[in-house]
Amino acid sequence: MKYNITIFFLVLCCQGVLSQVKTGVVYYGEIQSLSLGSPVGKDYNALLVFDTDRSLYTTRKDSLEQLTNSMKQEHKFTFTVSTSEEGFLYYNDLKNKTLFARDLGFSYVKEGIPKIVWDITSKTKVIGDFECQMATCTFRGRTYTAWFTMQVPLPYGPWKLQGLPGLILEAYDAHKEIFWYFKEMQYPSRFQYLLKPINNPTNEWMTFNAFKNNLEEKLNQATLNGRILSEKTGVPIHEDKNPGNIFIEVFGTF
């Protein structure tokens, strides 16, 4: 009996080592059109690499955009976002129940994996070869609709959307001002080397609250810039007091 208990505990401990290390990859398109009312904004290439214990979502990275065909039409929008060498990263560590992020303003943020309360509906549709089910939730000020598939039974998804019984292939908010759409999936894939924790050069992680305060400060800055432009051109502008038109995560009423 003692022997059995020992083996039992030994196996428990080794479970992490012996678990499958096959990784999968999903390519998403991420369209950011905050305040524009429909998905007409900039379309980024994004990547989700995952295995059974963790996932890493990468977006707005220089190397992901390099092979892109240039936009067919020219626009008059000016966006303050752009790509960078490392991009924005979201590392979902299921084992330690922690979400690490290299987020807006290149802030390194660490928080417990947010608990999202999903409402799974009976609506279904097919994306690619996958049968998907629809689920909705309200997360940090926005209402999201996500389509997940049980054929990939892992609680991952784009950005911070996670916690469904299957992988999220498509998600969007009420007006598709934030829109993630599915392009391609490969499992197993040759991207094991990409699935590693975020490299934080200072090793200092800010809390989510500190990050939130940072964003509010940036919103104030943007408002002041708008006032300058209005004075310069001599025509009045409307002040958008709605932070939902600037940031994805919205705090307070929306």
Binding site: I31, G37, V40, D43, N45, L47, T68, N69, K183, E184
Partner: peptide, 24 residues
């Protein structure tokens, strides 16, 4: 288990009509 599905190539973009901005 092998899953391989391609709806769009990773470098392609979906067709979205970008000419219209709508204000609610």
């Amino acid at each position: 288990e092998t899953l391989s599905t391609v709806v769009l190539k990773s470098t392609e973009k979906i067709e979205v009509n970008r000419d219209t901005i709508s204000y609610r």
